[in-house]
Nucleic acid binder design. Structure first.
Length: 687
DNA sequence: CCCTGCGCTTTTTTT
DNA sequence: AAGCGCAGGG
């Protein structure tokens, strides 16, 4: 079966027992190795359901599953290996044992938007203005603590800087709020799984005992929690295979620690180590660039990718006036190649435009639309981030989870139904007094004298409506129920009232209809569709199933995506745009004296996505907040060309520019502002 | 309680 | 350029 593998790959596939570390360079056939390995295990009579493979994204899981099935061919049976992400795995574990942790069996999973509203009110509760500590910063701090299993009390003790002390206080509020709603955020899924394993050894044994073989993909991107969960699951049988590339570690900001892959041998001394250094993807000319670039990083497993595909066009470095010129030229070139005569012809799907930040694709989208070239924008401002979509999803969450306070607060007066902020504050007060979820005090609202009669009536009407739909959940198709609900609350009317133009209403209502479609497609492919199931799936898969829908609708499309989303993919023709100081490396990584090595790895990931041609572009200047700001070419460009002294000059200039911008911002923040009125009534405090 | 309009801030990557 | 929060009038 494995005749077409090289010796290193074959060793990785055939070392079936004991710990195994596969250091797989970019384009070295890593995915193939993993899927062949799964197939090989099954060929050796390991029962498929005793194999667990963990991937980084749902998409990767789905693809791996498909490939493994193809490979197994006739052996394909009902039982399949379990292939999923860490988060999906943990959800399944937690669901089996939720009660032990004091959570309901089905719990809401809070996405980024929910987290932000909780973070915001947590900051309000401790009376910290979001100028002093932004919700986003608070959330990353909390996430960092969680990835080290640090709870609020411990966070408070270890906090040193002002920001950390405030963050620790807010963290406590944040945690209380989530618990009060019976909700978990993404980190909680991992954190509580770990907690479950430590507090209940029997549970750990039971869960670990479900599998005899464990495979972890993208191991360089595991954070502390994931690392400990892997250990807890594999310690018994020790059949642990991890695959990764330290040079492609690009999620340090999210708590990933490259040390896990670098120190694998310490934890698993008997481990076999296999290096995959032959690159089957990129032309020699492209790979040379990548090797030169990554050599600038220290603290890495030394390895040099060897090109299997020799020669190739040298990568191009192109400068433009501004981002519009950049987009026009790139799209014009794609257009030419798409319409070229056969030998040079390429399909739109052969092209990828890669960028660092999500504001960059705008100009490219415009040009692609103008040129009538189909494209897919991956990730970015997600469908599920849109206000109208979030509103509908909040209704669904309230139907499914009565305790979900964040969602309830979002919809209790959306569309506006006469339940104003003072009424809500009063209700919240009752909830706090009684130590119960907001939903539970709504029925009593009718009896309380401190709410106006009109408001009481409206609250009661709202409560009855939600109750009615909850009752219908069990004996009515989901799609019909949701359609009815959208009609009853007259969401379209709300959009008409708020939107700026009729076209805007159409666009927004189309998004609402997309939600209904998503429910429909979920219900169609699921044996026992439930609202819980749908919510869980969207929380975990998020934007991904929509991505796939896009890909099905537009199979021949240019791909636009961030460098982060590009990991693991390849394209014949790659454009890396906006190769400028401040973007790549990003200014924020320059200021927060975090190492720019990770930015360099990000650049490396981009370069190694290209099979045949690679074009790196940068601009003289770039519009930012309506002003044209000059740009400095990225130091990485010079590094790749071996122009070390020019690279250093660029680096210095880049640092200075970033620092100057930071200083200017600082100054602006300190400048005396118009006295802002403090809100008198803040959210009541929870105990 | 609802809506409008003004003024202020905004700098990354995402399971 | 755009989104958010807030003040003030209906």
């Amino acid at each position: 079966m494995a005749a077409d593998l090289n010796p290193a790959q074959r060793e990785a596939v055939n070392t079936l027992s004991g710990p195994l570390l596969v250091l797989a360079g970019a384009g070295s056939g890593k995915t193939r190795v993993i899927t062949y390995r799964i197939a090989e295990l099954i060929r050796h009579r390991i029962r498929p359901e005793r194999i667990l493979a963990v991937t980084f994204t749902n998409k990767a899981a789905r693809e791996m599953k498909e490939r493994a099935m193809v490979l197994l061919g006739k052996r394909r049976r009902k039982a399949t290996p379990e292939i999923s992400t860490f988060h999906a795995l943990c959800v399944r574990v937690l669901r089996r044992h939720a009660q032990r942790l004091g959570y309901p069996e089905r719990f809401p999973i809070y996405d980024r938007g929910d987290q932000e509203s909780v973070a915001r009110s947590a900051l309000r509760e401790i009376r910290v203005s979001s100028e002093k500590l932004r919700p986003g910063d608070l959330l990353s701090q909390i996430s960092a603590w969680k990835s080290h299993s640090v709870l609020p009390e411990a966070a408070g003790e270890s906090a040193t800087t002002d920001k950390q002390i405030l963050s620790a206080l807010a963290y406590a509020k944040y945690r209380t709020a989530l618990r009060a709603s019976g909700a978990m955020d993404f980190d909680d899924l991992l954190l509580l799984t770990e907690q479950l394993f430590t507090e209940h050894p029997a549970v750990r044994q039971q869960e670990a005992g479900r599998f005899d073989h464990l495979l972890i993909d993208e191991y360089q991107d595991t954070n502390g929690l994931q690392y400990r969960i892997v250990r807890a699951l594999a310690e018994g049988h020790r059949n642990l295979c991890v695959v990764g590339d330290d040079d492609q570690s690009i999620y340090g900001w999210r708590g990933a620690e490259v040390e896990h892959i670098l120190n694998f041998k310490n934890d698993w001394p008997e481990a076999t180590v296999v290096r995959l250094e032959a690159n089957y993807r990129s032309r020699e000319a492209i790979l040379n660039l990548a090797n030169v670039l990554i050599a600038h990083n220290s603290a890495r497993h030394d390895k040099v990718l060897r090109p299997y595909r020799k020669g190739g066009e040298p990568p191009r470095f192109v400068r433009f006036e501004d981002e519009n010129a950049e987009a026009t030229a790139v799209v014009r070139e794609i257009h030419q190649r798409v319409n070229a005569p056969p030998p040079d012809r390429a399909g739109p799907q052969d092209f990828a435009i890669l960028f660092r930040t999500n504001e960059q694709p705008r100009a490219f989208e415009m040009e692609l639309r103008r040129a009538n070239i189909p494209y897919v924008l991956v990730g970015g401002q997600s469908f599920y981030d849109r206000k109208e979509v979030r509103d509908i999803m909040a209704y669904l969450k309230v139907l499914a989870h009565p305790g979900d306070e964040v969602s309830l607060l979002r919809i209790i007066n959306t569309p506006s139904r006469g339940i104003g902020s003072s009424t809500i504050q009063t209700l919240l007060g009752h909830a706090v007094d009684r130590g119960e979820p907001l939903w539970n005090v709504l029925d009593e609202a009718a009896r309380h004298g401190d709410i106006s009669a009109a408001a009481r009536q409206r609250v009661e009407a709202f409560r009855q409506m939600i109750r009615r739909y909850r009752e219908r959940l069990t004996h009515m198709p989901l799609v019909d129920l949701v359609s009815d609900l959208i009609q009853e609350i007259d969401y379209k009317g709300e959009l008409e009232r708020l939107a700026s133009s009729p076209a805007d209403v159409d666009v927004k209502f189309a998004a609402v209809e997309e939600v209904v479609n998503a429910i429909g497609s979920y219900a169609a492919r699921t044996e026992e569709p439930t609202l819980f199931g749908f919510l869980e799936e969207t929380a975990l898969a998020g934007r991904e199933d929509l991505k796939d829908d896009n890909e099905k609708k537009q199979p021949n499309a240019v791909t636009l995506m961030t460098l982060h989303s590009a990991k693991g993919l390849e394209f014949p023709h790659v454009y890396m745009v906006g190769m400028e100081e401040g973007l790549l490396p990003h200014s924020r990584s320059l200021i927060e004296n975090r190492s720019i090595d990770e930015e360099r790895r990000l650049c490396y990931v981009g370069v190694t996505r290209a099979r045949d041609t690679l074009t790196l572009t940068f601009c003289k200047g770039r519009m930012k907040w309506g002003k044209l700001r000059p740009s400095i070419p990225s130091r990485f460009l010079m590094e790749m060309r071996g122009e070390t002294d020019r690279a250093q000059r660029a680096a210095q200039a880049g640092h200075q520019a970033a620092l100057a911008a930071a200083a200017a911002r600082e100054k602006a923040a300190k400048k005396p502002k118009k006295a802002k009125k403090r809100r008198s009534g803040t959210t009541p405090r929870r105990r």
